[in-house]
Design a protein around this nucleic acid. Structure first.
Lengths: 212, 212
DNA sequence: AAAAAAATTAATCAAATAGTTAAACTTTTT
DNA sequence: AAAAAGTTTAACTATTTGATTAATTTTTTT
């Protein structure tokens, strides 16, 4: 490996830098086990390196965790937030885009919702500080809902409840994945097929619920 | 305290037995911090006793955790499961009862959904064994949904998706409580008012979504 | 190719933490 | 009231685990 600090692609093989190997390993261990359940040794083993190297690249467990949490929470909130507050979409279009994007991100990162919610519940102060400028009141969406009600396009509804419904229907199945899989007796593959189907399903479900 | 092994009520004061004090303390610490985040010392402090007493009453941290997890998961699943599989309610009545009961249980035990989901994700094997006979396929409900579709009472819908929707809309707001509170800038009291309102809201929302 | 810098490891440390033990204290039994 | 059984504590042990250090190897610079 000629370059030690960057990712290199040599003869169809992808070589990750040590720092990247650590990130990949830490992502896996932290998202599965949480901050308190993760072990630095497990991350080192997963990355195939010495435990001391973790501290050489990232000073402490907390610092490494913050990196992973920030990356994960941004992945989860950034796209959805942008859609929620977009000015270019009408209400129905917006609901469709939010749900499809949200579920797609979760299909690609199925552990992240449970990871974020778990840490948010176990350490609300940290999360409050950390996500204060990431999570904002969905002002534009709430306005559009109110407007839809006033114009008689949708049934009267508390915009906050509708917003919760949109988020709940997209995120919860991934959080309850092991429970649902036990309940329905389905494989990972079958679960992800359900989630693909779910993109359209939830959009229809919500539109049917609110449209007049 | 005359009786050392039972709860006693003396002059309007409730005295808990040591075992009960441990359970109450362990419930609080485990549901907040999870298995890996909880400390036996914290539980002892919370119960106002010596750490060795925890091991005198419950052999190990794992044993004590199992007790709390079993109690919590039963509280969450038993009532809802009974309603889901009840033969005495038609589809719409059943949806109404499930949601109202589910949200009510969560209002009374707001930490439990996140607690269960967290452990289920971090230790799926344990949960699979533990909840195998608690969590079952909602056969009766699925049948009723299929029947409703056949009779033209409700729109065509995948019963599995509808079941997920019912559970998602009831449970997710409690799991995302700190996130929603940060987002909306609301107090605990305001949050619980929203959840009270939510019982009727979710029932209406779902009925509107499926009714023909 | 020698020197310097950077990356990596083995060994070790120190704090945290689940669990144990033996003694003291309290309640119940005889 | 003496003995036995049950409860509680203080002190201790063993292990886990995040973090450090000093030496070794590899890479880069001169």
């Amino acid at each position: 490996m000629t370059e030690s600090n960057k990712t290199a692609i040599i003869k169809d093989q992808i070589y990750l830098s040590t720092e990247e190997k650590i990130i990949v390993a830490a992502r896996k261990v932290f998202t599965k086990k949480g901050l308190s359940g993760a072990r630095m040794q497990d991350i080192a083993d997963e990355a195939g390196i010495n435990k001391a190297l973790l501290h050489y690249y990232f000073r402490s467990k907390d610092k490494l965790f913050e990196k992973i949490f920030e990356e994960g929470s941004k992945k989860m909130f950034m796209t959805v937030n942008a859609l929620v507050e977009s000015a270019d979409l009408n209400l129905f279009q917006k609901i469709e885009k939010i749900i499809e994007a949200h579920i797609q991100i979760e299909i690609e990162n199925p552990y992240i919702p449970a990871f974020i919610m778990n840490e948010a519940n176990q350490n609300p102060e940290f999360i409050k500080k950390f996500l204060q400028d990431t999570i904002k009141l969905p002002i534009k969406l709430v306005e559009q809902i109110q407007e839809g009600i006033n114009l008689g396009h949708i049934r009267p509804i508390n915009p906050v409840q509708l917003f919760m419904n949109i988020m709940s229907l997209s995120a919860f199945p991934f959080i309850a994945k092991p429970i649902f899989q036990t309940s329905f007796g389905i494989t990972d593959e079958q679960f992800f097929m359900l989630m693909e189907q779910r993109k359209k399903h939830v959009v229809e479900f919500i539109i049917n619920a609110i449209k007049l």
